[in-house]
Design a protein around this nucleic acid. Sequence first.
DNA 1: CTGTTAGCGCATTCAA
DNA 2: TTGAATGCGCTAACAG
Lengths: 345, 345
Amino acid sequence: MATKQRVTVLDVARLAGVSQGSVSRVITGKNWVSDRLRARVEAAVKQLEYKPNPHAQGLKSLKSRAVAALVSDISNPLHGTFLASAEEVLSAAGYLLFVSSTNNDRDRELELINAYGSGRVDGMIVAHSDENNRRVIKALQETGLPILFHDREPRRFGDAVIVDHAHGAYVATNYLLSLGHQCIALLSPSKAIRPGRERFSGYKRALEEANLVVQDDLVSMLGASDARAYDVTRNLLKRSRSRPTAIICLGTQMLAGVLAAINESGLSIPDDISIIGIGETDLVRLYKPSITAVKWDIAACGRHAAQILLQRFSESNAEKPSAGSVVRSPVELVLRDSCAAPRKQ
Amino acid sequence: MATKQRVTVLDVARLAGVSQGSVSRVITGKNWVSDRLRARVEAAVKQLEYKPNPHAQGLKSLKSRAVAALVSDISNPLHGTFLASAEEVLSAAGYLLFVSSTNNDRDRELELINAYGSGRVDGMIVAHSDENNRRVIKALQETGLPILFHDREPRRFGDAVIVDHAHGAYVATNYLLSLGHQCIALLSPSKAIRPGRERFSGYKRALEEANLVVQDDLVSMLGASDARAYDVTRNLLKRSRSRPTAIICLGTQMLAGVLAAINESGLSIPDDISIIGIGETDLVRLYKPSITAVKWDIAACGRHAAQILLQRFSESNAEKPSAGSVVRSPVELVLRDSCAAPRKQ
DNA sequence: CTGTTAGCGCATTCAA
DNA sequence: TTGAATGCGCTAACAG
């Protein structure tokens, strides 16, 4: 039942009438080879349908021409966009991208880092679920591999592609303030990761510049789930007084929950309540009314991430590792129809 | 700048005062080893933080303890659920799952199959984008690896986990017929893949059993995008006569487009038009009105897929490959608030 | 420019 | 049960 015998460099060399080393040279493409030799080898490769054994290659070269991406939740469409564009760049350079979902499980993160770190990949793109977890940081550093942090705090090691969430939240809050809102709720995923902290700080700065103070009960940073956001929103809307006149919801899934809760309450957007969402998702664009939202160029982030890693791979041949680079993606507010001045009380 | 020198079996053997072979034996766990020896080796492993080199392991053993999953679109939440549960089972068995997105690009599919097929993984989970593409089928078969088709037609080789989409569409259509609808539109992704074909056949069967005939202009199977679905729906709703009184939309992203178009038209659900959607997404559950939808146990599908592959891995030690297995997942209709009898004309 | 050769780290024979 | 010895398929260093 063996489908095919493995064909090796030796078979190719024999058929092409050259040495094994020469075959390797044309495969790797790193050395000069005469056109004639190359042609013969390539013909033999094609005829035999030779495919190099990645394990043997990796064993000798200590490289695997692969990158791992660790994401918390593989089904988040924002991650999907990022990964797809990163993969495009990597695959154009001959690298594979292995995507693994950690499902926000700390142990799983460690396992994956160790599994990938022991030679399976040449570098990693990481968006870990808790930046306070020292063990994850340590494990990453100990791989000795180029690490690219995606939307996580830059470290003393590794590079980072980060998003200016603080600015996004600042602009969003300012916009609502300029419309006359004073009671603005903020929903966003956890403060254990950079996006959460940054958003909160941008929100806070905008309020303070307007001589307002953050009301803790208007801020919820308890996880990314739509169900949680639904509950939070219901509670916010139930209040008789100090009901928020605007909600900034900076989570893709969460937004669905917020909208559902508002729908159910019978309040109308934007007359009764203003909404600012996140991303360029179907929901945001097509909802009625369409949702004003902060956005950034996620595909560009993915491309940058890939390019930085590729750069690292090429320079590790040289002796001097340059300093960690940080690419910061700007965030803008896309105005749509979900915001208006609050009702006169 | 080298972070750590690689520690090898030899280092462990030296520290434990045993032979290299013995270390290997305790690592693989396949041979009997005295407790004393095992203890010494394990201590040394821990002390040195030894991690086996997967390339060296793979080179000798011809196994990689990894599985690749090829999906068309990594950001589809239905895929995410499937992959997360498959990964859970695989990782419990010590296998890694590499997820790669083909973005519905045929060439990319072939590249990935070849890249993974040449030793990087022990098996693959595949949902290819066009079942008519013989080259993809051929490439899969030629890997000689256990292949698991996900929601694709079972082949002469490989196993399959499929969903009874025909039944789902049949039940959905019947339900609408029973409410009195006669003019029912069907939107679903491509007929180039099994789900599309099956859904169409279920829809058709239900209509025919009611002595109705499929009207081609009520059926659209042109791709999964929400934008396309939006356009299609707008056109459907624009018709003065023979405007459908119900729409069955069997695509996750598409549903967003359909709902947006309906919103825009000013029609109300379910009074003016009934809707049947798909999946257990936020949108379906939380939309107002909530959307009646077909669903199946996606997580179970993922688990089955993983289990079947694991089974294959263990039996390949034996000589007789058993026949391809096919797991068929039932589909049910979850009744919510988006369907009602059509208005009397 | 090309052939020859020596391992990469490990699993697995063969002896003992 | 354990140690010694042999490649797995390939890359790279060294000659020529």
